[in-house]
């Protein structure tokens, strides 16, 4: 564990304490504590397979922790009734890795979807709202397209427009930069920071793209082996003395996380023909 700095916020939007969760007998989280401060962009980073997406599902109440607690805006998510959980989710936006656009609806209808499901607004007003959200992500011209006609980066921006349709208090981004070309990557990085500041959102980014994530986050948690192994501002983490965090942040192939999967001795393995 690296040195724990003073708390950034006395009243965090999301606060996780002693979180324990396992899947198929394999522990994914084993005593995780973290706080997501309001109004900031917080990144949760770690190697693939550390359950970063699972963490977002725990915050969103799609999964229940085995032990520990997840509080969002003062409410313990796992204890909420169905109605209260749904009310809370209306105030959360989530951007899935794939975008998760509804494939049988046009771009316009996708962005209008949460508005039509949750409000009784008249159609002209829905149209105005949708166009505003689409304008914010720069895709007002793509409103008549079907999701199958969009590039990966466009799909994510549409999904982002949909996520902010109900003006939520926070947005969770699941691997927003994976598999993007440099241009759409740049656009997304810009958008996340811009939306966060312009709309007064709280953003949680789950990612393993160190450079892009570090560029826009205010605070970073690094998770590995089910524990928080490092945290701090991007600058602080850059100068950490933890060998592991340094390996991860700088992308070194070998270090505390060995390049080789555990195996018997190489030479012995080659000579051993009986196996």
């Amino acid at each position: 564990m690296s040195d724990i700095p003073e708390r950034l916020d006395t009243d965090p939007l999301v606060s996780i304490r002693g979180l324990r969760f396992s899947r198929g007998g394999r522990p994914i989280f084993d005593g995780v504590d973290l706080d997501i401060p309001r109004g900031k962009v917080t990144a949760i980073m770690g190697p693939s397979g550390t359950g970063k997406t699972t963490l977002l599902r725990l915050i969103g109440g799609q999964l229940e922790p085995e032990a520990g607690s997840v509080h969002v805006d003062g409410q313990e998510v796992a204890r909420l009734s169905r109605g209260a959980l749904y009310a809370l989710r209306k105030r959360m936006g989530m951007l899935f890795q794939s975008g998760a656009l509804l494939t049988d609806l046009t771009v316009f209808d996708n962005v209008a979807f949460p508005l039509r499901e949750h409000t009784d607004l008249p159609e002209p007003m829905i149209r105005d709202l949708v166009l505003m959200k689409l304008q914010a992500v720069g895709l007002r011209g793509a409103r008549e397209l079907m999701p199958s006609e969009l590039s990966g980066g466009m799909a994510r921006r549409i999904a982002l427009a949909r996520a902010i349709a109900l003006d939520p208090m926070m947005i969770m981004y699941d691997e927003p930069f994976t598999g993007q070309d440099p241009i759409s990557m740049g656009a997304l990085v810009e958008l996340i920071r811009l939306l966060n500041d312009a709309l007064g959102l709280t953003s949680i980014i789950v990612s393993h793209d160190v450079k892009e994530t570090a560029a826009i986050s205010d605070y970073i948690y690094v998770i590995s082996q089910g524990k928080v192994v490092g945290q701090g501002t991007p600058e602080a983490l850059g100068q950490t003395d933890s060998a592991w965090v340094r390996q991860f942040m700088q992308g070194l192939p070998d270090g505390p996380v060995p390049f080789h999967y555990p195996a018997p001795d190489y030479a012995e393995d080659l000579l051993n023909h009986d196996a």
Partner: peptide, 18 residues
């Protein structure tokens, strides 16, 4: 099944739509 595989169902849940 495809809606599930492409996280559309999950996405709806997170938009508070059952």
């Amino acid at each position: 099944g495809l809606m599930k595989a492409t996280e559309q169902l999950s996405g709806m849940e997170m938009m508070a739509v059952d």
